[in-house]
Design a protein around this nucleic acid. Structure first.
Length: 279
DNA sequence: CTCTATACCGAATTAGGGAT
DNA sequence: ATCCCTAATTCGGTATAGAG
């Protein structure tokens, strides 16, 4: 849940090396997220996070089955790609390796769920490998997720489900917006609102506010966020703001009540677990 | 049938500079 | 603040092929 709304990932498809330095007062404490990129690989992106989401869902599934869980993962590239709704073409294989490099090379320092106030940093994954056989064919990938992430996934109340159609969202800002909406609108139908400036700050985007606002308007126009309806409005102070509500809670005659279909996902059939191997 | 692997191409997306 | 444009990159779908 913490990863849902705070800026932890680059929203850009291009290489981002500019760090995210996010801080906000939350009562008496200050919430801080600092993300620095390895200059060679760039910052981990919101698409790279799909691998972490996959890993988290594997852990949760193992937990509900009473199977022991682990921070270590081993999975065939094909299975991973199918699970996160990606094409299985050759270029995708390379992209997964690039993603692992970025996940490894990106350093996160945050006050969220950290004991004490001393600075502490971690990478999304601790180690990874993409072994091949003698003929150079991939034998899948192996990686170990950060303990910070692992501990969070183990705690029931810290985990929020994500609609599978999330993987079909093509825009970085669009994906990030779904996370915000899901986090805040998850438990209530009434909806929530944020000003454009608040959203811009929360996103960690390097885009200028005006251009960011333009992009958000496009996302609103498309109305593709699974399960939610977006609306722009003006605050009393005249500021542009975004409100969102759960589609299921809307009146049946509301235009947003009928769910909008997203391009069909190529979703792999559920396989036996076994991806979360005990340490 | 699953999985690994490659190639192609138009559409979409974002960063960033500059003009209005 | 917004719009316009370009460069770089990814997306999404298709086609192809071979090993097991």
């Amino acid at each position: 849940m913490e990863m849902m709304e705070r800026p932890f990932f680059s929203l850009s498809k291009g290489k981002r090396t500019e760090p995210i330095d996010y801080r906000v007062r939350n009562g008496t404490t200050e919430v801080r997220v600092r993300v620095t990129a390895n200059s060679e690989t760039g910052m981990a992106t919101i698409w790279d996070a799909d691998i972490l989401i996959w890993a988290a869902s594997q852990i949760r599934e193992a937990m509900t089955r009473g199977v022991p869980t682990s921070r270590r993962f081993r999975v065939s590239l094909y299975e991973l790609l199918r699970a996160i709704g990606r094409p299985t073409g050759g270029a995708e294989y390379g992209r997964i390796v690039e993603a692992l490099r970025r996940l490894k090379g990106t350093v996160i320092e945050t006050t969220i769920r950290q004991k004490g106030t001393r600075p502490q940093g971690f990478g999304w994954i601790e180690e990874w490998s993409a072994p091949t056989d003698e003929e150079g064919r991939s034998l899948g990938i192996e990686f170990t997720i950060a303990d910070w992430l692992y501990q969070g996934v183990l705690e029931d109340k810290l985990v929020l489900s994500i609609d599978r159609e999330y993987f079909a969202l093509t825009g970085g800002i669009e994906r990030w917006l779904y996370r915000v909406v899901r986090k805040h609108g998850g438990h209530q139908g009434g909806g929530w609102g944020f000003t454009m400036a608040q959203l811009h700050h929360k996103s960690g985007s390097t885009r200028r506010l005006a251009d960011f606002a333009k992009d958000v308007r496009k996302v609103v126009e498309r109305q593709r966020l699974p399960g939610y309806w977006l609306e722009l409005y003006r605050t009393e102070g005249g500021e542009e703001a975004l409100r969102f509500s759960a589609r299921a809670m809307l009146p049946t005659n509301h235009p947003g009540y009928a769910p909008k279909r997203l391009p069909r996902l190529r979703v792999a059939a559920r396989r036996e677990p076994g991806a979360a191997v005990p340490e």
